[in-house]
Design a binder for these strands. Sequence first.
DNA 1: TCCCCTTTGAAGATG
DNA 2: CATCTTCAAAGGGGA
Length: 424
Amino acid sequence: MPQLSSGGGDDLGANDEMIAFKDEGEQEEKIQENAFTERDLADLKSSLVNESEINQSPHAAAVRRGQQGEQRGFPEKHREHLDGASKHQDGGMYKTQAYPGYPFLMLPDPYLPNSSVSPNSNKVSVVQQSHGMLTSLLPYSNEHFSPSPPHLPTDMSQKTGVHRHHSQDLSGYYSLPPGGVGQISPSMEPAVYPGLSPVGFRQPTPPTSPAPFPHSLMLGPSGMHPTGIPHPAIVPHTGKQEHDQYDRGMYMKPHHVEAKREKEPKKPVIKKPLNAFMLYMKEMRAKVIAECTLKESAAINQILGRRWHALTREEQAKYYELARKERQLHMQLYPTWSARDNYGKKKRRKREKLQDSNTDPGSPKKCRARFGLNQQTDWCGPCRCVPSNHPHPHPHPHTPSPPPTPQHRCRPTTRPPLSSHSTI
DNA sequence: TCCCCTTTGAAGATG
DNA sequence: CATCTTCAAAGGGGA
């Protein structure tokens, strides 16, 4: 991961190829930002129709990329777009207006022992960084983060343009280990986490304009967690479905749900910290939805995935850095937590299905069968790497259904690990 | 009602 | 060590 924090050794600055995989022909486009989503849409639709096209694109894309961008692997093509749409997108991350769901790192007043904030206030966390960017540290459950905390001017909240209730619930939070956090100061500076090491939190005060919101973190309703540190990462133990229900319930009837929750001694489930892409999705989802008529998350996510690839390294780096801080915070808040804790929380996953299909005698028709031995250049990387008589090593992307899995997408080149385990 | 879909990345599990 | 698997968010769609 981008050793963003480490001095100098920023992987992101490497010249190596950024993302040649799965670009689905987006490179050729010199599109205007307004057209981008429609284009995405069209591409998405067409790509859905023609899957093989997707798998071929990396080559063409790589060629195109080689032609247009000599100095770096990253698609220069989207520069314009990025300058327009994306800048504007990034603004979402760093500006207060456009991204209601991802606005600021706010330490809720309720966090503060003496603070008196409405129980309905939502918590959002944002750290204002040296570049002037606002980094959300506790972005879980977007919806629970009101764009306009109660103590904010109303016009502020209305500017967001997203209709959210101020009384939205809080679905998850980072709870703190007992005694872990006594209080959190608005600034989110290291000191706010007594007992916690500073991590990477910084809040360089903006030279010119003070943060619109003095408090870095906002808290939701009281009583969500005994520790007093609510966090989106924490949800009722009941699992996703219940999580959703919990959210919705809270959203609609906070009091009732709260009362209900008190009855439930269930242990909260600490969710995984969001990775860079998840953070990006959270931030951009609303924007994409607003730009197009799509509502289906699967389709939206496809667009987001492509946009993610269209981002420059620097732009992605922001999210990687944010994700890194998320993990650090998560790690500090829940030192004993492990991702394994949540294993099995979900039911049968598609992976199992894939395995089933892979065991299917009809499934082995992969690259070899598809392109033949004389066209190995058309094979995906893993296929080229294995002996011709070797069984296909992975869920195959060319298989019409099920779709390619995250494990393998036939990436011609792999992005240098923008690592996350950073040494602070 | 509940799972699937779809994305990328992180982390745990496995061979 | 390399590869595989699971989960994180989201919400419409379908069984």
